[in-house]
Design a binder for these strands. Structure first.
Lengths: 285, 285
DNA sequence: GGAGGCGATACCCAAGAGGTATCGCCGCCG
DNA sequence: CGGCGGCGATACCTCTTGGGTATCGCCTCC
């Protein structure tokens, strides 16, 4: 009884996601029969029924759902191994660098200070910035595309990452300067969620669709910035986000919004000295 | 160029650990030439020199060292996927259970309270205890042999695990009742590290060897307990450890020893409701 | 300078991954 | 009710490739 190969895990993930052998095979660039056989062999090897087959398609069993989760994590770890090794080999060729992931549109001020401070450290290497969508930093770290990331509690999950917290700030609502609420010293969440004419914008979900609601759909921060500057939307954001937006806006503290903490995170077993230096520098800011 | 397979990672880890193709091949139950070829192919696939070959043996390159770390983590994730799926399939057969790992010899009182409280929860499943050596809990979680673990900061690393802290306690030194220091209300670490006739016992390192020093070698808690009870060794331990040892001992607070916190930890992407219930129960104790 | 340990090469074989054709099953629709 | 179409499984073949044996070339240490 040989051990499980990543090929089998990739096959299983494809089938489990498509819930259709034909489409999964197509996605994998292979024919359907060998895929069916590979999955059957995997089930025999694990003594587990992973899929319930009907002539109308396929559904996941409990064990299948567990394997889907675990296989994704394992495959992430494998591609991380591959990528990090490739990058380590480049380092040997004389181009050492760290990749720092951060949500696009996040506090440029903090990042600039960090990069500055780190660059003046002894033995510092060049830092490549990798800007990503909200919540993607974790995956970038797990798959080895990034070495360190800045993320923001409570929005981003720190699950499975080591981290150090850098700063904490309250949240404000950004409104056009002339808005009736603009004079208030503070507001509550409920005061601003359903403002007439100033709906909260809608972000795409993980599946690419948008939640229902009246707000305008936004895909990135540029769109958001434009909408807010035009007075077509309001947004609750960390205080530091204010500096990124136009000056014709008022920021009013939202007292009952959760505090936002910025943390620097890295994959658990990182041994890179560059990452350690960067983290140490960040913690001292 | 196809992706990396776990077989190749296993081969590489074997070679990197043995630093000798022949022995690695033997350990893997195969001949040396195909192993050499497999590693060469892996190097080509990653465009990286992983090993420096001399006629006298093999040394790791920088990229090789990175891959060794990453490959171990990835392989752990793969075996975890395998094991958890197997167990999930058993669950479908009607024997649901959670495996709780804990250092052998750790506070039985806390564990008993936890198991009791959890058993009386609705929907609780049976809990299998897995006792292990100090510091092994993390690996058990990562490789899927355990679902939750109790561990103790600052001794155990929480790196890469999600956790909830349960309790904090000071440390005491355990001495024979008649010892000159036994009457003191408190001591400092420096007072008890070099007591004549009461050396600190030595625990095996990760490689199985023992550090140098005068103390007796111990391999498990039974030996330690015996030594302390016989008055042949002193030991600094969390307050709660006291109840496990004989009553002819005095426990004196060590004021400058770090606080010990007991945490319950689980692998990052755990979706098991049983684990969640157990954690919630533990947090309420 | 010869012996022995070590990794690489050359060459062969067989396991097994993958392709094509086809079957059996079951909804669906005319 | 019967044929069509979608889906997964089977049968059978091919050829890639992983693994074995024999051997070489190199270096180190007697």
């Amino acid at each position: 009884m040989v051990a499980v190969e990543t090929r089998e895990l990739r096959y299983f993930v494809a089938v489990a996601e498509e819930l259709n052998f034909g489409r999964a095979a197509q996605r994998l660039g292979m024919a359907q029969p060998p895929l069916s056989r590979a999955i059957a062999q995997l089930e025999r090897r694990l003594d587990a029924t992973l899929l319930e087959r009907t002539s109308r398609g396929v559904t996941l069993t409990g064990a299948g759902a567990v394997l889907l989760d675990e296989a994704r994590a394992a495959l992430d770890a494998v591609v991380a191994a591959e990528r990090r090794t490739r990058r380590a080999a480049e380092v040997a060729d004389g181009r050492p660098a760290v990749v720092l992931a951060s949500k696009a549109g996040a506090s440029t001020e903090l990042i600039a200070k960090l990069l500055d401070a780190y660059a003046s450290e002894p033995n510092s290497v060049s830092v490549d910035m990798l800007l990503c969508g909200p919540g993607e930093q974790g995956r970038l770290l797990r798959t080895g595309r990034a070495d360190v990331a800045l993320l923001h509690r409570p929005f981003d999950s720190l699950s499975g990452l080591d981290h150090e917290t850098l700063s904490t700030e309250g949240q404000v609502v950004l409104l056009p300067a002339g808005h009736p609420l603009a004079g208030r010293p503070q507001v509550r969440t409920s005061d601003v969620t359903d403002l007439p004419g100033l709906p909260q914008p809608r972000w795409p979900r993980a599946d690419g669709g948008y939640p229902d609601g009246p707000g305008p759909k936004v895909r990135d921060h540029a769109q958001l910035q434009q909408l807010v500057s035009l007075g077509r939307a309001s947004v609750i954001a960390p205080e530091s986000a204010r500096t990124n937006l136009g000056h014709d806006l008022t920021a009013i503290p939202v007292v009952d919004a959760p505090q936002v903490t910025t943390v620097i995170a890295w994959p658990p077993h990182s041994r890179s000295v560059a990452v350690a230096d960067l983290v140490r520098t960040a913690a001292r800011l």
